[in-house]
């Protein structure tokens, strides 16, 4: 199946932006990645099994493009992360602190944490998206949680999931 690109943009551009931002740590780069991802979807003939399959594909492409952007030799200097975070409208100071602490983690922990907590993917699904083993995902998730617990203290519960 295929869905119209415009419909997918409306539904998932913020999801993809959050994934791209998680890796790029730059609003401008994340916007570019999201644009490129939808352009790639628009120009591909690939067929999908379901909308969830499309979304997972979009996220995988976003991650790959974000990583490519980070390694490109012509990459612009990153926007100042702190300046950008100050422009965001958080509901509470704790929310802002949580985002800052997550963004301070290493990329391999950040992305697993994001796919688990924001996109509600399972360990198996995350391993398929990132193309790493499930045990690898579990290790990264555990270590990421441990770090967040140390950084956020009472603002982060012990996960029993």
């Amino acid at each position: 199946m295929r869905l119209q690109t415009e419909e997918l943009m409306e539904k998932y551009k913020d999801n993809l932006f959050a994934v791209a931002f998680n890796i790029c740590k730059s609003q401008a780069d994340a916007d570019d990645v999201v644009q490129d991802t939808f352009l790639q979807y628009h120009t591909t003939d690939k067929q999908f099994e379901s909308e969830q399959h499309i979304k997972a594909w979009l996220i995988r492409v976003t991650i790959n493009k974000s990583k490519n952007k980070m390694t490109a030799f012509w990459r612009r200097h990153s926007d100042n992360l702190d300046d950008y975070i100050e422009t965001l409208a958080f509901e509470t100071p704790e929310s802002e602190n949580l985002l800052e602490q997550v963004m301070s983690l290493k990329e391999k922990y950040r992305i697993v944490i994001h796919l688990f907590y924001y996109e509600d993917y399972s360990v198996r699904e995350i391993s398929e998206i990132l193309n790493v083993s499930e045990s690898n995902v579990k290790v990264r998730l555990t270590r990421g949680r441990t770090m967040l617990k140390r950084l956020l203290k009472e603002e982060w519960n012990d996960d029993d999931e």
Binding site: D14, F17, Q27, A30, F38, F90, E91, S95, Y117, W156
Partner: peptide, 30 residues
């Protein structure tokens, strides 16, 4: 829950309104 806290924090992130497929415009921000 941790998920609820996480989602609350990261739902502040939004793609630029300039993202569009119209005529393959590539908006430059920098």
């Amino acid at each position: 829950t941790n998920k609820e806290r996480y989602k609350q924090a990261f739902s502040t992130l939004h793609a630029s309104r300039q993202i569009s497929l119209e005529g393959c415009k590539m908006q430059k921000k920098e």
